[in-house]
C-alpha cells in the first residue's frame, strides 16, 4: 500500500496528512505511534475505513488526506477524534452562493 502503516492498524497516505485511516476496527484509548516524536491516542472507537485526527483542527481548518485538501473542519477536532461528516464538510460541490 502507498503511504505508511501504523502498527498494522491504520494508514497515513502522505506526511502532510492531518488524518489517518483505520485499516481494522480500533478501540478507544489506543495509542498509535506516528513518528518517533509523535503519538496519537484515539478518543473514541474508529471503524474500519474511517478516519481519525492526527493533529488538532479548529473550525474552518483544512483537513488533508492523500496530501490534498479533502474538506474543512466544522467544529474543533482534537487529535485522536473520529473525523467524519459530523465534524468535516466538503468545500467543493456547494450551492453557487456559498461557493468560494
Amino acid at each position: 500500500m502507498k503511504g505508511t502503516t501504523l502498527e498494522d492498524a491504520a494508514i497515513v497516505m502522505t506526511p502532510e496528512d492531518t488524518v489517518g485511516t483505520a485499516i481494522t476496527d480500533l478501540v478507544a484509548d489506543r495509542t498509535l505511534t506516528l513518528r518517533d516524536d509523535h503519538a496519537v491516542t484515539l478518543t473514541e472507537p474508529i471503524q474500519f475505513g474511517h478516519k481519525f485526527a492526527l493533529v488538532g483542527h479548529e473550525p474552518d481548518d483544512e483537513v488533508v488526506k492523500y496530501g490534498a485538501v479533502i474538506g474543512r473542519a466544522t467544529t474543533t477536532i482534537r487529535p485522536g477524534d473520529w473525523v467524519h461528516t459530523h465534524n468535516v464538510e466538503s468545500i467543493r460541490g456547494q450551492p453557487a452562493e456559498d461557493r468560494p
Binding site: T21, Q47, F48, G49, H50, K51, V63, K65, Y66, A68, V69, I70, G71, V83, H84, T85, V88, E89, S90, I91, R92, G93
Partner: peptide
C-alpha cells in the same frame, strides 16, 4: 459511501 468511511466529495474524488 459515507457508511464506508468516505466523508467528502474531495476525498472520494482523490481516491
Amino acid at each position: 459511501n459515507q457508511e464506508g468511511g468516505l466523508t467528502t466529495i474531495e476525498e472520494k474524488s482523490l481516491g
